[in-house]
Computed example of a mutant assay.
Amino acid sequence: MKKLFLMIFVLGLTSLSAQNYCMSAPEGFGAGATGGGTVTPVTVSTYADLNAKLKLTTPQVILVSGTINCSFTSILVANKTLIGLPGARLVNTNQTAEGSGILSLKPGSDNIIIRNLIFEGPGAYDVDGHDNLTSEATNIWVDHCEFQDGMDGNFDNKGTADNITISWCKFTYLKAPKAGGSGGADDHRFSDLVGSNKSNAPADGHYSVTFKNCYWAEGCRERMPRARNAELHILNCYYNTSLKNSLAIGIGGGDKNSTCYVEGSDFARIGKPFKDYISTDGGKVDVVFFKCLKAPANFGTGVSKPSYTYTTLPVSDVEKYVANKSCGAGATLQVSATGLFSTSCK
């Protein structure tokens, strides 16, 4: 059994898949996130305590224990690491527009790590409500989380959000969608939005987001992700939903144009892998599918591979590792009561 304390990775773990599964630090556009660093962890088991710890201005490493029933919280968060102990779950089943959603990170939020948590919403209902997690934060790493049944969406990045890595996360809808909402969609199982409209963009004009080893699973219909004004890297991701009219990646140029480099990803079962939204968002869109399975043709004039350093899996192994129920995407890390990560996955 190989051990890690918070962000400190024990050298000698030589298997590529093991290193990739339990990363010591983020790779990609969110590589600058350090969260609460190595301060002594504190454990919370109530909504009030969780909220209080997130509001503190000092760095914190927060361990979440058990199921916490949440109210929608919009909060400024900085220099925080939030880690779920095994089975930890943040839940809000409120299906009203104002009461829905779990956590919204306000503009100005920065340097955040969230790992090994399950976010559970009430199921999709299109009344312009809230997401399980909404972020306008910069320098954020969300790793090994499972997002279930977000009402408006599972995990959206918009507004001032930038420099983001989302790794080993699973997105799914287990509850039937509710029809008749004021937004017009009777089936709003739309998972992940990047940018809320064609003019919405961070300070530098582009949402820089890495999706690595993520799994869009059963029940997802659209937005895997849907983006505008974006600079995306979708790496070693897995798509498998039985919905016949599902749409994986949707990209509009927006006011600042968009690029998307899709690498080593497996579109195993999806209605349509890609759609451009230039007709509604305007701008220019360039998408490259490099060494992917069941991918469409490239779109636009080309995209360069990201310049940062990162590890990859062979595309033939993506399903084997990413969809693994014990060691794949989702809240599958082993975490001790003192914040020790461990893995026997190889």
Rank of each mutant, 00 (worst) to 15 (best):
M1C: 14
L4Y: 13
L4Q: 15
L4A: 15
T14C: 15
Q19S: 14
Q19I: 03
G35P: 03
G35S: 08
G35T: 01
G36K: 03
G37I: 02
G37E: 11
V39D: 07
V42I: 09
S45E: 15
S45Y: 08
A48R: 11
D49I: 00
L50W: 13
A52T: 00
P59I: 05
P59Q: 10
P59S: 09
V61D: 14
L63Q: 05
V64W: 03
S65M: 00
T67N: 13
T67W: 06
C70M: 15
C70L: 03
A78L: 02
T81L: 04
L82E: 13
P86E: 06
L90S: 09
N94W: 06
Q95I: 02
A97Q: 11
S100Q: 05
G101L: 02
G101Y: 08
L103I: 08
L117D: 04
E120K: 13
Y125W: 13
V127A: 10
D128R: 04
G129F: 00
D131E: 13
S135K: 01
T138G: 14
N139M: 07
W141E: 07
W141F: 15
V142F: 07
H144Y: 05
Q148T: 01
F155D: 12
N157R: 10
K158R: 09
N163F: 12
W168Y: 13
F171Q: 05
T172P: 04
K175P: 07
A179F: 12
S182W: 01
G184I: 00
D186P: 08
R189F: 05
L193R: 14
V194P: 06
S196M: 06
K198P: 14
S199C: 05
P202V: 05
P202E: 11
H206A: 12
H206K: 13
Y207D: 12
Y207V: 06
Y207W: 02
Y207C: 13
S208D: 14
V209F: 09
N213R: 12
C214T: 05
W216C: 04
G219H: 08
R221M: 12
E222N: 15
L232F: 01
Y239E: 10
T241C: 08
S242I: 01
S242K: 10
L243Y: 11
N245T: 06
L247Q: 09
L247Y: 12
I249S: 09
I251G: 08
D255W: 04
D255C: 10
T259I: 09
Y261R: 02
V262K: 11
I270R: 04
G271R: 03
F274N: 08
I278Q: 13
S279R: 06
S279D: 15
T280Y: 07
G282W: 02
G282K: 09
D286T: 00
V287G: 04
F289K: 02
F290K: 12
C292Q: 14
K294T: 05
P296G: 07
P296F: 09
S304P: 08
S304Q: 15
S307W: 01
Y308G: 06
T309N: 14
Y310P: 10
D317A: 11
V318W: 00
G328M: 00
Q334N: 15
T338I: 01
G339L: 03
F341K: 02
T343C: 11
T343Y: 11
T343A: 14
C345N: 02
K346T: 08
